[in-house]
Design a protein around this nucleic acid. Structure first.
Lengths: 126, 126
DNA sequence: TATTGACGACTACGCGTGTAATCCATTACG
DNA sequence: CGTAATGGATTACACGCGTAGTCGTCAATA
């Protein structure tokens, strides 16, 4: 079987994926232009990331003349799910409730968040 | 000022920290013995981790004759908070509620979890 | 007392990551 | 047409990480 979905996406690579999750397909230059300028990346760096993501099998490209048009092969939701599971497993004994409790304890929840949670819980209870 | 608390703890290092968060101070051998055998680590590896954690300023030691007794300098809760915040920032736009929503959508919440959440929300609403 | 073993300190080494620079082919421009 | 710009491929390089091995020293033991 081919590369399993478990290919790890690093922090820097994630910045590139986010661009492509927001809009694809894009050329390397397109991607570079949409990377947060705060990162101060050179185009070369973006190219490197694209190459590595291709190698990891999480991106695909189609040729557009001399250039490539890149598109994600993995969905953002899948990445989010994997990363979240990892956190829950590593630090919360694999259970989600303690994570939510932690968020609550740390005042990480705004009033709006709490209101949203209430709605969520009502929804879940059904 | 000395090493800031933001020193990163790697996955392997975390295994060592967990042992010391559970019980400290401990000698290097004590720690090695309490590491999950499933990791198949040699004592040397554990020593290396202890050294690196000392260098990072997240552990301290006191001499006990010829050996060291290691103890954590950072609290588990602080590490958990940092890691959680990082996930929330990176993948959930810095807001906790979407994370909880994600957990819900992914059926990551058991009935018990939901009951716990209800109680939590009731508590938060006060 | 001479040897052996336990300890921390230092060294090793291959792979991933962050951050590019260089190479080579092709295309666009003067 | 010759030269520069553009685009992907390859190479670079330092640092962190996973996983130890080696060195020098001190203590226990035969």
């Amino acid at each position: 079987m081919a590369e399993q979905a478990s290919e790890r996406i690093s922090e820097a690579e994630l910045a590139v994926m986010e661009v492509l999750w927001a809009d694809a397909p894009l050329t390397a230059m397109d991607v570079a232009e949409r990377i947060d300028p705060a990162r101060g990346w050179s185009d070369r760096t973006v190219k490197t990331m694209l190459g590595r993501l291709l190698a990891k099998g999480v991106l695909a490209f189609e040729e557009d003349g001399r250039r490539y048009l890149y598109r994600p092969l993995v969905e953002r939701a899948a990445h989010v799910a994997g990363s979240t599971r990892q956190l829950v497993d590593r630090l919360f004994g694999g259970r989600a409730a303690p994570l939510v409790a932690h968020l609550a304890e740390n005042h990480a929840l705004s009033d709006d968040d709490i209101a949203e949670l209430e709605a969520l819980v009502r929804e879940l209870r059904k």
